[in-house]
Each structure stands twice: as C-alpha cells, then as structure tokens.
C-alpha cells in the first residue's frame, strides 16, 4: 500500500498532517491540572494534556495508574476536585452523563455494559436515545412522528451494523454472544451516537490475536472514515504503538510521559514504570 504523499503542512499552526496522510486538527479537549481524590486516595495528581481533533490518543500505564479514572473524568462521570476540563474552547461545567453524550462524546466500558436480554439491534438503537425527540406516548402508539423518527434512526444504526460487519447477529440477544463480539456491539452502540469524541476503555482486553486485529482495523477505519477523534486506554503495548498518534503515560496517578509512540518508547521514566526499577 502506498500512501498519498503528505501535503504541505498548512499555515494553521494548530493542525498538521500525519505521515499516513490524515489531517490532525486543533485542540478540542484540554485537561488542565486535574486532581482526583477518593477520600485519602489520590487517583490522579495534577495531570494536564490535550486531545486534538481527528487523532487517536492513547492513555497507557501499569495497573492502578489511574487510566480509567482519567477516562471517567473526560466523560464527565467523575468530577475532579481540582483542575479544569476545557472542551471546544470553553470550560466545561459539572454535567450529567446524558448532557455529555449530547455534546458528542460516546464511550465503551472495560467491563461490557450492554443489556443482555435485548437484541444487538435494540442495544445499538439505545445509542441514539439522546437524539429521539418523540415522547413516550407517541412511541407507544407508534404513530406519525415516532415511526418516521425510528425509521431514520434505524437507517443510521444499519450503517453502523454494516460498518462493523455484524449483520449476522442483528437479531441475536446480546447475552448469547461471545466476549469479542460483545465488545464490537459496544463499539457499535457508541458509534450509533455519531460521536465527535469516542472514548474506548480497554477495547482489546481479553481478546485473542485475531479479534485484536479485527478491532484495531475497526478503530482505524472509524477514525479514517468518520474523522472521529478517539481516546483509548489499552494494555497491549503493540496495539497502542501501532494505532495511536500520541500517547500519555501514567503511573501512580502522575503523568510520566507524553508524545508520539516513538518518543514515549524511548522515555526512561516509561521504561522504568513498565519494566520496574531497582529500589535501594
């Protein structure tokens, strides 16, 4: 595969073109000096970093480093004691999860959070819940607006199903699916919300090599086809280095590295955190 020659970097200092020809835009989200405490435990300590439009941003670190807490701060689920979250150039106030969703942020969970008794299709439809305007009565009567609306949403959902190649399990109850497919359904639900920023919490945990390859391809395709900005947490270093444009490394709640995969790989603090270091 030959990639298109990288265009001249535009005048806009905020955006740049990656070696494989994708344009990375300006900063859409910025974390400023975030500190998060649970009682006496400091989960995140004074961390700052940004996420640029169109990039794949990874957060890595050993167990207990505070990665999932960080993702929960981004998604607005946790409210940090100190620090500010800036989204699209404005400081984000304390919000309820649905308000975050309405702002174009969708996520998947480390421990799959789907409705087991519902079909794959219905699960994915829930991803569009915030966009449904008809009221409960209209939906129950299935009349006029409600019907038109559901058809339109279904169309969008079908595009996601086609994209993730899960046509054959459309009507299968989620509870009957193997783990790898459940993960894919969760991604589908997040995509159905047409997010601008997609948060993935360990999308590859517990998968075999083949499933990991499939998932990597889907993540790249989502980023490429829809231009979705992606922030992901992942343990598999190989995957992180292959997928992401920039990586934040955390250890014991602190940021110990930030940069391109190559920069991070050569960072002594990162090597120590991962390989361990002799204590005196």
């Amino acid at each position: 595969m030959t990639s298109q020659t990288a265009q001249e970097t535009t005048q806009d200092t905020d955006s740049f073109v990656t070696p494989d020809g994708r344009t990375i835009g300006g900063v859409i989200m910025e974390m400023k000096n975030i500190t998060l405490r649970f009682g006496g435990v400091v989960a995140i300590q004074d961390i700052s970093f940004d996420i640029r439009e169109g990039e794949i941003r990874a957060i890595i670190g050993p167990n207990g480093a505070g990665k999932s807490s960080m993702l929960n701060v981004i998604s607005g689920f946790y409210v940090p004691q100190d620090g500010e979250v800036w989204y699209h150039g404005a400081r984000r106030p304390r919000m309820r999860p649905y308000q975050v969703a309405e702002q174009g942020i969708a996520r998947t969970f480390q421990n799959i959070a789907l409705f087991d008794g519902m079909s794959v299709l219905d699960n994915i439809m829930t991803g569009r819940l915030t966009m449904m305007k008809s009221n409960m009565l209209q939906q129950a009567l299935w009349f006029g607006k409600a019907e038109r609306e559901e058809n339109a949403h279904r169309e969008q959902v079908e595009k996601v199903i086609d994209f993730l190649e899960i046509q054959n399990i459309r009507k299968t109850p989620v509870g009957r699916l193997p783990y790898g497919l459940k993960k894919r359904v969760e991604l589908a639900r997040a995509l159905a919300a047409e997010p601008k920023l997609l948060l993935l919490d360990e999308p590859m945990a517990g998968m075999n090599v083949e499933e990991k390859e499939d998932m990597s391809r889907f993540i790249l395709d989502v980023n490429d086809e829809f231009g979705t900005t992606i922030a992901l947490i992942e343990h598999d270093m190989g995957v992180v280095m292959d997928l992401s444009d920039r990586v934040v490394v955390m250890d014991y709640g602190k940021k110990i590295g930030d940069g391109t995969p190559d920069e991070v790989r050569g960072n002594q603090a990162v090597i120590d955190a991962y390989l361990g270091v002799a204590h005196d």
Binding site: M1, T2, S3, Q4, D20, G21, F163, R217, D221, D224, E225
Partner: peptide, 8 residues
C-alpha cells in the same frame, strides 16, 4: 470504498 482512501 471502505478503507481504500489512502491507496495509490
């Protein structure tokens, strides 16, 4: 068309 954008 999917995934074909970056090909020569």
């Amino acid at each position: 068309k999917r995934g074909m954008r970056k090909y020569d």
